[in-house]
Design a protein around this nucleic acid. Structure first.
Lengths: 216, 216
DNA sequence: GCCAACATGAACACATATGTTCAGGTTTTG
DNA sequence: CAAAACCTGAACATATGTGTTCATGTTGGC
């Protein structure tokens, strides 16, 4: 039951049926945007930001917020969806064709900052939403990585001796780890992209083949 | 702070001063054990198991529990400490000398099940305890990994072009990722150790050197 | 066997968050 | 301008968890 009274956060469970979305008034649309903006910001800073905090940050009454998002989970879902859409848009600008190693390096360069920035939005979602939902929202991004890995395997430059799924997991895992380490001051932010890329290239390269160095 | 009325969970903040621990009665000691056992089990299953749940699982009154652990955080701390001590004991049986690659493989083989088993105990701790405390409790284990990495670097078989800290992070990160993937059914439990070892060996091997295959 | 240490459930105090209702004020929209 | 849509704060209803107090049993040590 993740549906709003009138469709603002309407992503009905896990499939996103657009639904008959009656046109809402201008101020309502404005408020929804403010709320999503504020929520994204608040949740990025603190995964358990309260609904009250978010409403205040949005410059909106708490009741107004509940008028648009039926539950807290609904709001978190909307923020996560929005964040992933934004990330995906940013990633659309990244070329995933050509040499798989370079493609991977490009993708890491474009992704890791986003991962870093919205790390705790994900955390919030993981505490509130069912795992399938998280998985579903990540689908497009996952697909993108999988495509690169797959290309690399077919080209014989990425390893074939481990499950493809695991290689994808490795990519995500190390990006998240780098985000955390950077936040904790254990890894230099200016160096993170290179470090992650170098590690991933080594991890994914087919045994026996020469490990390429990430070209900045 | 994090101290019990009479010293059961007494690890005063971050340093573990043994304190003048007046000998407690036999039934008290018995109950403390039951509580820790139950808490470890409950928290391993659900990171937000309540104190009431744990007391019930321990076959003990809630008030009794609070008599031994002043706060929930105290209890979580005690469980985490205990878990890490157990892990460390298990790891003591693992030879970390000799060929660094094989040492790493041995360590992964001995560790990953533990990581898998107590994954959500860590989660609970991360929500309740300050990051420094988590770090402190992990110190010995961290040191162990770092030693292996360091040996490998000095022997010229592990890479020297990335921060040592990051390599250690990589080891932990991939073990945890494997634990999650296994729990989610995306990775075969029987295959996990091999997969993680193979990935780590590739990730850590010095550029140019031949990547070894994990010997089971 | 006696006394102190310990255990126990019930009840209470407190805090915090989520949702909801209400009675009125404001903005859009047509 | 008028109706409908929307916003608002205050108050309320829940729910849930933590931690404490109390009065009364129970157990263990010496």
């Amino acid at each position: 039951m993740a549906a709003t009274s009138r469709g603002a956060g309407d992503r009905s469970g896990s499939a996103q049926a657009p639904a008959a979305q009656t046109e809402r008034r201008a101020d309502a649309r404005r408020n929804i945007r403010s709320i999503l903006d504020a929520a994204q910001l608040c949740l990025a800073r603190d995964a358990d930001a309260s609904v009250a905090d978010i409403a205040k940050a949005a410059g909106v009454g708490r009741v107004t917020l509940y008028g648009h998002f039926k539950t807290r989970a609904d709001l978190v879902d909307a923020v996560l969806t929005r964040t992933m859409e934004q990330s995906d848009a940013a990633l659309d600008a990244t070329d995933t064709t050509g040499d798989p190693g370079q493609a991977l390096t490009r993708l890491v360069g474009a992704s890791w900052q986003i991962v870093h920035q919205f790390h705790s939005v994900l955390q919030a979602a993981q505490r509130e939403l069912p795992p399938e939902r998280i998985r579903a929202v990540h689908d497009r991004t996952l697909q993108r990585v999988q495509t690169i890995v797959d290309n690399g395997r077919r080209a014989g430059v990425f390893r074939d001796d481990l499950p493809e799924r695991w290689l994808v997991t490795t990519v995500f895992s190390l990006m998240h780890a780098a985000a955390e380490d950077t936040a904790a001051g254990r890894l230099d932010a200016g160096d993170a992209a290179r470090v992650v890329s170098a590690t991933l290239l080594a991890a994914l390269t087919a045994p026996g083949a020469a490990v390429p160095t990430p070209a900045p």
